[in-house]
C-alpha cells in the first residue's frame, strides 16, 4: 500500500499528462475538432486517416525526417562512442579537462546554441565560411539555405550537444573489467581485435540505449528547425520535419483533429522501429548478467 502511495505522484502525472491526453488525441483523430470549430463537433470516422494517405506534405515531411535521420543517427551514435574511447585512453593527458570541455556545450541552453550556430553558418557573414575562405575555398557552401547542405549543417549543430552521450559511453567503457583487456593482451590481441571482441560487446547495452534514444529523438526532431527558421521549413521545405508539420497542423493551421492523426502516425512509426530494434537486440547486445 505504501509503495503505491509513493508511486502515486508518478501515476497521477502519467495518467493526467501522458496516457489520458494520448487517448484524447486518439479520440480527436476521429472527429472534426479544430480551433475555430465553425461546424458542430462530429464523429467523422476514418476520414482524417484517409486524408493522411493522400496528403503529400505529410509523407514528404516524414521523408525529410528519415533523410535527416540517415545522417544524424549514425553520427549521433558513433561520434560520442569514438570521443569516449579517446577520453578513456590511458595515453591521453589532461583527460579530465577534455571531459569538461566536451560536456560544457551540453549545459549551454540549446536555443542559445542554435542561434549562435545560425550566425556561424551564415553563408555571407558566418565564421565557418570565413574560415573556409581563408583556406582557399572560394565559394563555400550556403549551409542553411541550400537544400544540399542543410542536413549536414543540422548534424553539425547536433554534434554540439553530444556531451551527454559521451558521458554515458564513457561510463560504459569504464565499467569494462580490465582483466578482459589484460587477458586479450597476453593472448596477443591487437587494438582492432580488442575493440571488436571485448569493447564493443561489453558496451553494446550502452550503444543500444543510445540508439533507441537517438531514434526517438530524431523522429521527434523539432526544436532546431523551429528556432532556425521559425518553423517555415526553409529552405524550400527541406527542414519541414514531421514533428514540425504536426505542430503546424495543430497550432498554425489550427486543425486539431488532423494534427492528432499525424501524432498517432508518428507514434506508430516510432513504436514499430523501436520494436524492430528490440527484436534485433538479442543478436548483438550482450548482457553479462543474463547468462
Amino acid at each position: 500500500m505504501w509503495g503505491y502511495l509513493f508511486l502515486s505522484p508518478w501515476i497521477v502525472g502519467f495518467l493526467a499528462f501522458t496516457l489520458i491526453p494520448m487517448l484524447a488525441t486518439l479520440g480527436f483523430s476521429f472527429t472534426n475538432i479544430n480551433l475555430a470549430q465553425e461546424t458542430p463537433l462530429t464523429f467523422v470516422g476514418i476520414s482524417n486517416y484517409q486524408r493522411l494517405t493522400t496528403d503529400p506534405q505529410a509523407w514528404s515531411s516524414l521523408a525529410v525526417t528519415f533523410r535527416y535521420a540517415a545522417i544524424a543517427l549514425p553520427v549521433g551514435v558513433i561520434l560520442p562512442f569514438a570521443v569516449a574511447m579517446l577520453l578513456n585512453s590511458r595515453s591521453l593527458r589532461g583527460s579530465s579537462a577534455f571531459r569538461v570541455l566536451f560536456f560544457l556545450p551540453y549545459v549551454v541552453p540549446f536555443v542559445a546554441g542554435v542561434l549562435i550556430w545560425q550566425g556561424m553558418l551564415n553563408a555571407e557573414t558566418g565564421w565557418v565560411n570565413g574560415f573556409l575562405q581563408t583556406i582557399g575555398i572560394e565559394n563555400p557552401p550556403n549551409w542553411l539555405n541550400d537544400t544540399g547542405t542543410v542536413y549536414p549543417a543540422l548534424v553539425m549543430i547536433g554534434i554540439w550537444g553530444i556531451g551527454a552521450g559521451i558521458i554515458v559511453n564513457l561510463a560504459g567503457l569504464q565499467g569494462i573489467p580490465t582483466e578482459l583487456y589484460d587477458a586479450a593482451n597476453i593472448d596477443g590481441a591487437g587494438w582492432w581485435s580488442t575493440l571488436r571482441h571485448i569493447t564493443l560487446p561489453m558496451v553494446s547495452p550502452v550503444i543500444f540505449y543510445t540508439l533507441i534514444l537517438g531514434v526517438v529523438e530524431v523522429l521527434q526532431y523539432f526544436l532546431v528547425p523551429l528556432v532556425l527558421n521559425n518553423g517555415t521549413g526553409d529552405p524550400a521545405g527541406s527542414t519541414l520535419f514531421f514533428n514540425l508539420y504536426l505542430y503546424k497542423q495543430f497550432f498554425t493551421f489550427q486543425n486539431m483533429s488532423y494534427g492528432a492523426t499525424l501524432a498517432w502516425l508518428l507514434f506508430v512509426v516510432t513504436l514499430a522501429i523501436t520494436l524492430v530494434l528490440f527484436a534485433t537486440a538479442r543478436r548483438w547486445v550482450y548482457y553479462a548478467g543474463e547468462r
Binding site: 541550400d146 521549413g233 526553409d234 529552405p235
Partner: peptide, 11 residues
C-alpha cells in the same frame, strides 16, 4: 505559398 517563396529565394 511561403515555401514556394523560399524556394525562389534559395535555389
Amino acid at each position: 505559398l511561403n515555401t514556394f517563396g523560399s524556394k525562389l529565394q534559395s535555389e
